[in-house]
Amino acid sequence: MNPSVPVTFALPTADRRTSFLFYGDGLGLDPIGEPAEDGVPEPLQFALNDGVRIMLIPTGGFGWITGDHEVAPRGHSECVISVSAGDESGVDEMVRRAEAAGGTVVTPPGRRPWGYAGAFADPDGHIWMISA
């Protein structure tokens, strides 16, 4: 594995425009690529940092990658994406922004046995834990 190549996490999405607005305008992530005819980059990717990207693939097209494995229905998660916000106020702000952009707070920010954290689900139900 070449550590200089970005790692990309692919998630299924029901609506490209909703995801584009949630992650871009709502969370403030930088989209990668030139907009397609619908104004949304194709493929729809965002940089989490210099080495990690998230790619949102329409649910129908996700099957081209997963073969005979079913895509989990909305509200069923097979993984939790965890990101550090640096400090408690960063956790509070990211969870607040996610909720304001149409996400759902899964666990409100607060003290946990492992530190300060909160979690939200994006419009497709993918869970993100933000920690300090």
Results as ranks from 00 to 15, higher is better:
Pro123Glu: 11
Ser19Met: 13
Ser84Met: 09
Phe9Gln: 01
Arg96Val: 09
Asp25His: 13
Gly24Asn: 12
Ile127Met: 11
Gly39Ser: 08
Asp124Thr: 10
Asp87Met: 00
Leu44Tyr: 09
Ala119Cys: 10
Ile127Phe: 02
Asn49Leu: 09
Val71Gly: 09
Asp38Leu: 14
Asp68Val: 07
Ile32Asn: 04
Asn49Lys: 00
Asp38Tyr: 13
Ile32Ser: 05
Pro108Asn: 14
Glu93Pro: 01
Asn49Ile: 05
Trp64Ile: 05
Thr18Phe: 01
Trp64Asn: 13
Asn49Gln: 06
Gly110Arg: 01
Tyr116Pro: 05
Ala121Gly: 03
Gly28Arg: 07
Ser19Glu: 10
Pro12Asp: 03
Gly28Val: 05
Arg111Val: 09
Trp128Ile: 12
Phe9Arg: 00
Glu34Ile: 01
Val105Gln: 10
Pro35Trp: 14
Gly118Lys: 02
Thr104Trp: 03
Leu11Thr: 14
Glu42Gly: 04
Gly63His: 15
Ala14Asn: 11
Ser82Ile: 11
Ile54Arg: 01
Glu37Ile: 09
Gly102Asp: 03
Pro35His: 04
Arg74Val: 07
Val40Phe: 10
Pro12Met: 08
Asp68Ser: 06
Pro108Met: 08
Gly115Phe: 10
Val105Trp: 05
Pro108His: 08
Ile65Glu: 05
Ser82Glu: 13
Thr107Met: 09
Ala119Val: 08
Asp30Trp: 00
Ser77Phe: 15
Gly26Val: 02
Arg97Gly: 06
Ser82Leu: 02
Asp92Arg: 12
Ile81Pro: 01
Ala85Ser: 10
Gly39Asn: 08
Asp122Pro: 06
Asp92Cys: 01
Gly118Ile: 08
Phe46Trp: 12
Glu93Trp: 04
Pro43Asn: 00
Glu42Pro: 01
Pro123Lys: 07
Arg97Asp: 01
Gly33Trp: 00
Pro73Ile: 07
Ala101Met: 04
Leu27Thr: 03
Ala85Leu: 09
Phe9Ser: 02
Ile32Glu: 13
